[in-house]
Design a protein around this nucleic acid. Structure first.
Length: 613
RNA sequence: GCCGAUGUAGCUCAGUGGUAGAGCAGCGGUUUUGUAAACCGCCGGUCGUCGGUUCGAGUCCGACCAUCGGCUCCA
């Protein structure tokens, strides 16, 4: 659930109608660089207007690292158009035209833009509350704009147009698609170059590229889009990741269950998913004989109904609550073709899902438990670049949510208390709660700056109703439990994408598919190399021997490029002394080390999940 | 799904209507090597798929599939 929050947070200076509310809420002014970038957007708009006098203009805000402007044009822009637009922009910048601010009465502005056929501007003005609207003009371009701008176009720093993309007007897929031109702008040439360099570096750690280079996973045209397959090394990685979460959550009191990949329509009708989520579910076939819709099979898109069915199959006393069912389950969801991205967004995903069935008085404790678990896991991975969203109900729109005020208040307070107690930073987001309850989401950024939701902890008052869940309380009566849905790493696939990029493929030893490569210098050392391998294998180390008829240099290079943590070079000296010459992938050379000491070192590092070598 | 771009050997890429190329990888041979690429040779492609235009299509057109950059929604 990536949310492009930077749009909300950083677009406040644009012409977006939504920026009105955002400005009130965020109430952050333009920083100088944002002001300059927003001005660059205006200059870009003028350049486009020169080429297409009939262009219609959308909005052109500053965003993180740059700016964009949305246009409706008589033809599609291609990357070949960018140099021309850049050249025209450069001319306008060189002209040092002042940005002239004005204020027009609404009616005058409406008339002006209507007359020009600027339907998007008209719509924006119609949504503005004030009697007067802001107008900015530079050179030959006049625009509806709140500003502020730099004094003149000459103050716009080094810029570069990055790409052209489609974007629905106001992000609504029922509205026209405009052409969005993205650019970046900086105060100095050095900053621009550094930014472009950073982008290149980020691309080097793109998990799709590393996945191919490190032989982790494969996307084949012979399989549906978004259905990755994992090679031995990738499977090893995901297995390690899953085992780790599995062990950890068992320590936290979760029990694992197993449910298959098929469900029946009726199950999802009971859970109500069928009515809102149907288009995301893969149909399979009708049930045997029976042709009613209810008995048709579908691929499992989520675990909750299955875990709930398990809960319901047994009687439950208040004493045994909370019941915590966890499962690593591969789910199938039909995601729109254009949204698929490597492992970060797939159609077959493996959730490390759990459903906790609990009494109302256990909410805070259970939230805390899930929260601690997640933080512990993040800590092990050394993840720091994430933020936490506390998604709350919009009190203005209570009708959009299910559950009483009292329960919501209790749940939200419990959640907030749990987050506050952790001393971590979080952002409360009003109106982002699920309809069935408030939630906490962990948002992580990938190498290219895209945000993805990984972990989530959600309170649910609705499914217990849908399924008529019960437990027998102290009073001997049946009471309704509450459910917490939580996922620690979210989906194995997405988290793997994150981990690959986070470590740039140089995984901590415990995660590395191959932890050590034994490199015999000449053929006569192969036998000893195998001895070394067997010793390490016996100690539980994933180790291989490079027996190819290559020079040692080539073997070192290949192991290095595969980011294998330890290269164990063995020659005459090592064989004689029962030693290995340890080279780290950091290029550090530890020299000859007794095999015993190395075994001790590597097993200790694996056991402690240390990120050191 | 929508807008745009891309698709040539396992990988990275060249090839603008006239006989499909390179490097790396792979395979074979020689070399037996001390910390990031030894040398020689060979194999390898219905140019994403299907259809169309043309005397002739990797090249032009269309549809589909997939990938990439965005938009929307979701883990």
């Amino acid at each position: 659930m990536e949310r492009f929050f930077y749009c909300l947070v950083l677009c406040y200076g644009g012409l977006s109608s939504m920026s009105v509310e955002v400005e009130l809420e965020e109430s952050v002014g333009y920083t100088p660089i944002q002001r300059m970038r927003h001005s660059a957007a205006h200059v870009m708009a003028e350049a486009v207007q020169e080429i297409f006098p009939d262009a219609r203009f959308g909005i052109g805000p500053a965003i993180e690292d740059g700016f964009y402007y949305d246009f409706e044009l008589p033809r599609a822009l291609t990357p070949d158009d960018l140099p021309d637009i850049e050249k025209r922009m450069a001319r306008i910048v060189a002209g040092k035209y002042p940005f002239v601010r004005d204020r027009w009465p609404r009616e005058k502005a409406l008339e002006y833009f209507r007359d020009k056929g600027q339907v998007y501007k008209v719509e924006l003005i119609e949504n503005l509350p004030d009697a007067e609207v802001g107008i900015f003009q530079q050179h030959n371009f006049l625009d509806l704009c709140r500003g502020p701008h730099v004094a003149n176009t000459g103050e716009i720093g080094p810029f570069k147009l990055m790409r052209v993309a489609g974007a629905y007007w106001r992000g609504d897929e029922n509205r026209p698609m405009l052409q969005r031109l993205y650019g970046t702008a900086w105060f100095t040439k050095e900053e621009l170059e550094q930014y472009l360099w950073r982008l290149e570096e980020a691309q080097k750690r793109d998990h799709r590229k590393l996945g191919r280079e490190l032989k982790l996973f494969v996307l084949s045209e012979d399989l549906p889009a978004g259905v990755p397959m994992f090679l031995p090394r990738g499977e090893t990685l995901r297995h390690q990741m899953e085992s780790y979460v599995r062990e950890t959550q068992e320590r936290y009191g979760y029990q694992h269950v197993w449910t298959a990949h098929l469900g029946k329509v009726r199950l999802y009708k009971t859970s109500k998913h069928w009515f809102t989520y149907r288009e995301n579910m893969f149909p399979v076939m009708q049930g045997e004989q029976e042709t009613s819709e209810d008995d048709a099979y579908v691929l499992k898109p989520m675990n909750c109904p299955h875990h709930i069915t398990l809960y319901k199959s047994q009687m439950h006393s208040y004493r045994e609550l909370p019941v915590r069912y966890a499962e690593f389950a591969t789910l199938y969801r039909y995601e729109k073709a254009g949204t698929l991205t490597g492992l970060a967004r797939v159609r077959s995903l493996t959730q490390d899902d759990a459903h906790v069935f609990l009494r109302p008085d256990q909410i805070q404790e259970e939230f805390d438990r899930a929260f601690n678990l997640t933080l512990e896991v993040f800590n092990t991975y050394g993840l720091e670049d994430y933020w936490i969203a506390l998604s709350l109900r919009d009190p203005q729109k209570k009708e959009d949510y299910v559950g009483s005020d009292e329960v919501w208040e209790k749940a939200e307070n419990a959640l907030r208390a749990a987050v506050d107690a952790k001393g971590v930073e979080y952002k409360a987001v009003i109106g982002e709660a699920a309809f069935y309850g408030p939630k906490v989401d962990f948002m992580v950024r990938d190498a290219l700056g895209r945000e993805w939701q990984c972990s989530t902890i959600q309170l649910d008052f609705v499914q217990p109703e849908n399924f008529g869940l019960e437990y027998i309380a102290e009073d001997g009566q049946a009471h309704r439990p509450i459910i917490i849905h939580r996922a620690v790493t979210g989906s194995t696939e997405r988290f793997m994408a994150l981990i690959i990029e986070h470590f740039a493929g140089a995984f901590p030893v415990w995660l590395s598919p191959v932890q050590a490569m034994v490199i015999p210098i000449a053929d006569r050392h192969i036998e000893y190399a195998y001895t070394v391998m067997e010793t390490l294998k016996a100690a539980g180390v994933r180790v291989e021997v490079d027996t190819r008829s290559e020079r040692m240099n080539a073997k070192v290079r290949d192991a290095q490029m595969q980011k294998i943590p330890y290269m164990l070079v063995v020659g005459d000296r090592e064989a004689a002394e029962n030693a290995v010459a340890v080279r780290l992938r950091t290029n550090e050379n530890l020299g000859a080390t007794p095999l015993d000491s190395f075994v001790e070192r590597i097993t200790d590092i694996i056991k402690t999940k240390s990120r050191d070598l």
